[in-house]
Design a binder for these strands. Structure first.
Lengths: 335, 335
DNA sequence: TTGACAAATGTTAGCGCTGTCATTTTGTAT
DNA sequence: ATACAAAATGACAGCGCTAACATTTGTCAA
């Protein structure tokens, strides 16, 4: 019932390989036969079988994407960028959710590699030993996203998390906060580097106090932001600012402070991370570090496309940076 | 360099087909040879080539999932459910983002079908004419998610959006609100049915006023919730409650009302839709209609798995319902 | 007109796997 | 020991496509 290459070939009065060429390398076929073939393809509604092609060529059009979470706002933005940019191209995006587990990531990479993908997009700098080995020997292009660091497998796009949190911490200190705390959930490597940036800067300013750092392995939610804030404030009631590992927590922190009648920013400053759109419209508007999530997704896909299409993309490592979005929630002098 | 079936066969001293059987139908192979083959498989690190298998069998292990948005919280929860439940199974999830466009959905369905997938998971009741035709003739199982309605292609899991908004609207009326408004963004078919439920109930109660309905095709955000609320309040300043098409808008509505010094719930009630976790911790806590998004994803995948594994899943159409989460933001008498 | 070369098209074989059917081995009852 | 069925294994072909090489056709200059 479904037409295949030789059906089209027969109908067009040419050989199968000519049809194949017409479809894959139209410039290798004369205008006349090309037209004829195309009209037959249309008429028969022919659609090539990707499995047969994959078998013959030893490669697929699959680009595997491994993200640690599909619900996290950060990665949904990245994913959107990837999907948008791949649209219309021949690349077939295949998504895997590693749930922040290096082992699950390894399993996914294995599955993807068995499909002989054209490319792989992975999150972060560190993979399990085994995954690393797989990737080194992989016969496909690789883009690492979210972070910038040394020794990429291939290509890379992201920013420095430690530098971003240094900037946010300095912002709090500049605003005059003297007893800054830190709350974090789900300490993946990137979160840990952000915490590290906070510790560095506060230590240098002689304002470091481990009692003001509250973390949990639980996944981040707004509700958890409330709980961590409550925790922090019970352990160290004199805390005058909270740097939050992400915006969910920051919103939760704000809600919790409101509930306790603590004025933000005067009694307590709050700063988030990522700068989700809602930060700007909260009351008070919440300061945050803007990260370029959509752009990371888009450019990761563009780099991949470029690398697969032809000449090497230049550069192959991109630091997209970040910006401090200072708002009311840390503007102590205001009001 | 990479081992294939016959490498394993040679090494194990059997024929290729026996290795194939050992892997696919272990019960058709004697214990002794099975053990030998498995040890060789391990030693050689043999991984079957899915493309070759697909070509031989005329079917893949792919399950295509088409969602209208990868950033929308609703669908990220659904996706999480699907990914979680598929983990460990042989099914390979492939995700497509239709961006709420029936044409893009059609393109995706075409691409998926060309891969001879085992199954397809689609969002919503209505597809383009062409998509419908494709799906009717498709040689794979289909699960429609998010909504329940008549005439499923195959299987279905969701809830009644119109009934859900009727319940929410009645909740507002029961709480004594007399001039309820409605704000909505991105009017997909499901949003439209929710609006319809609101219109029905307010009309029946003789409280319907088109001036209190503000909609936009723009994608939903918290910021947009602020804007739509501002719009609504400028058009109909005496509005005493807002039913929001989703929780992003509801949070925006709350922020905007706070900014205007309007007390929620006394001067203005606010109700959202979906009941994202953050609704419960806002100040005041925001009423919403809880929808079972994770469950929809999980069960959609279970149904699919069951249908592909063996006997027909029963039932093949599931209404997971919803619950009204009444909170402070609509509790007029409180405080 | 002819030869030389490029462009266009065709032939053949094979990618790695599994369905079908044929054959061999094993187990069981007489 | 024999007969017979059931279990286990194997030979072969083919899924639909494309790389590599082979052949034909077309073009142009001498």
């Amino acid at each position: 019932m479904k037409a295949n290459l030789s059906d089209v070939a027969k109908e067009a009065g040419v050989s199968a390989i000519t049809v194949s060429r017409a479809l894959r390398h139209p410039d290798k076929v004369s205008k006349k036969t090309l037209d004829k073939i195309m009209s037959v393809v249309d008429r028969l509604g022919y659609i090539p079988d990707p499995a047969a092609r994959a078998l013959a060529v030893g490669k697929t059009n699959v680009i595997g994407v491994v993200v640690p979470s599909v619900t996290n706002n950060v990665f949904s933005d990245v994913m959107r960028g990837i999907f948008e940019t791949s649209e219309g191209s021949k690349w077939q995006i295949q998504l895997g959710n590693s749930r922040y587990s290096p082992l699950e990531e390894e399993r996914l990479v294995r599955t993807f590699l068995s499909q002989k993908p054209a490319g792989l997009i992975l999150s972060g700098l560190e993979q399990s030993e085994a995954t690393s080995k797989l990737l080194m020997n992989a016969d496909c292009r690789i883009v690492q996203i979210m972070e910038c660091g040394p020794a990429p497998y291939d290509m890379m796009i992201g920013f420095s998390h430690i530098e971003a949190s240094r900037v946010a911490t300095r912002h709090l200190l500049e605003k005059g906060y003297k007893k800054p705390g830190y709350i974090a959930a789900r300490l993946d490597p990137r979160s840990q580097r952000r915490l590290q940036g906070f510790e560095e800067v506060t230590t240098a300013a002689k304002l470091y106090d481990p009692a003001r750092i509250v973390t949990t392995p639980r996944p981040s939610t707004v509700t958890l932001g409330c709980e961590l804030t409550a925790d922090l404030l019970s352990k160290a009631p004199d805390t005058d600012a909270i740097l939050c590992n992400n915006d969910d927590l920051a919103l939760g922190a704000l809600f919790e402070c409101q509930r306790r009648g603590l004025n933000t920013p005067n009694e307590i400053g709050i700063c988030g991370f990522n700068d989700l759109e809602m930060m700007a419209v909260a009351n008070p508007a919440i300061s945050s570090v803007r990260t370029h999530r959509l752009q990371i997704g888009q450019q990761a896909m563009s780099m991949m496309d470029a690398a697969l299409a032809g000449p090497e993309p230049d550069p192959s490592v991109i630091d997209v940076g970040f910006e401090m979005s200072a708002r009311e929630s840390t503007n102590r002098s205001a009001k």
